[in-house]
C-alpha cells in the first residue's frame, strides 16, 4: 500500500501533463525507514522522449548524494506513460533497481482523465498495490508525526 498526500499526487500529475507528450519522471524522497513520501523532486528526462525516460547521470549522482546527506530514500519513483496505460512496461520492470520504492505510473493518454497506479518491482517482478490518498499524514498512521494536534 502506498499512502501519499494529495498535494504530492497533484504535483506528479501536473508534471506529467506539463511534459506531455514526452515522458515525465521524478522522485518523492522521504525519511529512511518511514515509507512516507515527503519531498517532491521533479527530474529532467534526459531522453526527452515520448517512449523512454532516464535521469541524467550527473543529476542522478547529485540527487543520491543529497538524499544520503538528509537520511532520505527514494520512497516514490514516478514516471508517465503518454500513450499507454499506467502499468510498467517490460523495459520498466527490467531496469527497475530500487526494491523498496513505490513505482508510480501516471498515464496522460486521456487529456481529461489521468490514470495513476503504484507498483513494487523486485527482481523484475511487478506487484500492484493500493494507493491511499490522504490530506495529511497526521492521521494516516504513517509514523512519528502521527500525533493529533494539541
Amino acid at each position: 500500500m502506498l499512502t501519499i498526500r494529495r498535494d504530492l499526487v497533484d504535483a506528479m500529475v501536473a508534471h506529467a501533463r506539463r511534459d506531455h507528450p514526452d515522458e515525465a519522471c521524478g522522485v518523492i524522497a522521504g525519511p529512511d525507514g518511514s515509507d512516507r513520501p515527503e519531498r517532491f523532486i521533479p527530474m529532467l528526462n534526459a531522453a526527452r522522449s515520448p517512449t523512454f525516460y532516464e535521469f541524467d547521470s550527473a543529476d542522478l549522482l547529485r540527487l543520491y548524494r543529497e538524499m544520503d546527506a538528509n537520511d532520505e530514500v527514494p520512497v516514490v519513483i514516478y514516471h508517465s506513460h503518454t500513450a499507454t496505460e499506467a502499468y510498467p512496461s517490460r523495459t520498466d520492470a527490467k531496469i527497475a533497481a530500487e526494491p523498496f520504492a513505490h513505482y508510480v505510473l501516471v498515464s496522460t493518454r486521456d487529456p481529461h482523465q489521468h490514470e495513476l497506479r503504484s507498483f513494487r518491482i523486485v527482481d523484475g517482478a511487478i506487484t500492484e498495490e493500493p494507493v491511499e490518498v490522504v490530506e495529511s499524514y497526521r492521521f494516516a498512521h504513517t509514523g512519528p508525526d502521527d500525533v493529533p494536534e494539541a
Binding site: 515522458e23 519522471c25 522522485v27 527530474m43 531522453a47 522522449s49 515520448p50 517512449t51 523512454f52 525516460y53 532516464e54 535521469f55 547521470s57 542522478l60 549522482l61 543520491y64 527514494p74 519513483i77 514516471h79 506513460h81 503518454t82 500513450a83 499507454t84 510498467p88 512496461s89 523495459t91 520498466d92 531496469i95 527497475a96 533497481a97 530500487e98
Partner: peptide, 12 residues
Amino acid sequence: VTILPAVAGGAL
C-alpha cells in the same frame, strides 16, 4: 567510487 543503478524505463 560511486555505483548507482540508472533510473530509467519507458513505455515500449
